[in-house]
């Protein structure tokens, strides 16, 4: 029962996220509103971490599985992707590595810079 109640709280935040998405004219998805709102409630102590933790960690653990249908859906967009396949592949591969490397290196550099200042 505890688990069910935790899942219910998460679904409640999803629903509030949907509501905010309807009301606010920003390009923010319901899930991001829900995430920020839950974080705020945890921070302010309105929701206790024990009230959602187990269900949350379970959902996060099985997250990769949730992307399988979206991945399989690629067979549906094959026709529209085919004419620009070469630029698409090059852009995806190059920029994914680029974003990953730049983000990692810059933040790592700025972190070690900060620690050195304190020393």
């Amino acid at each position: 029962m505890k688990f069910l109640k935790q899942f219910m709280i998460l679904l409640l935040f999803c629903a509030i996220g949907e509501l905010l998405k309807e009301l606010l004219p920003l390009p923010v998805p319901a899930s991001v509103y829900g995430l920020l709102l839950l974080l705020l409630c945890l921070w302010k102590g309105i929701v206790k971490i024990e009230q959602v933790k187990q269900a949350a960690l379970f959902l996060i653990e099985i997250m990769p599985v949730m992307f399988i249908p979206a991945g399989v859906a690629l067979t549906q967009s094959w026709d529209s992707l085919q004419p620009i396949l070469l630029p698409a592949v090059v852009i995806i591969v190059v920029t994914t590595i680029l974003v990953m490397a730049v983000t990692g290196m810059v933040s790592q550099k700025m972190m070690t810079g900060e620690t050195k200042e304190h020393e």
């Binding site: 899942f7 998460l10 679904l11 935040f13 999803c14 996220g17 319901a30 899930s31 991001v32 829900g34 995430l35 920020l36 839950l38 974080l39 945890l42 921070w43 971490i49 959602v52 933790k53 269900a55 949350a56 960690l57 959902l59 996060i60 099985i62 997250m63 599985v65 949730m66 992307f67 399988i68 249908p69 979206a70």
Partner: peptide, 18 residues
């Protein structure tokens, strides 16, 4: 399975909070 994506994204608030 896709349906669980929104609650799972909301659940990311837990590790973020910790």
């Amino acid at each position: 399975l896709s349906y669980l994506m929104t609650p799972a994204t909301v659940a990311l608030a837990v590790p973020l909070y910790e």
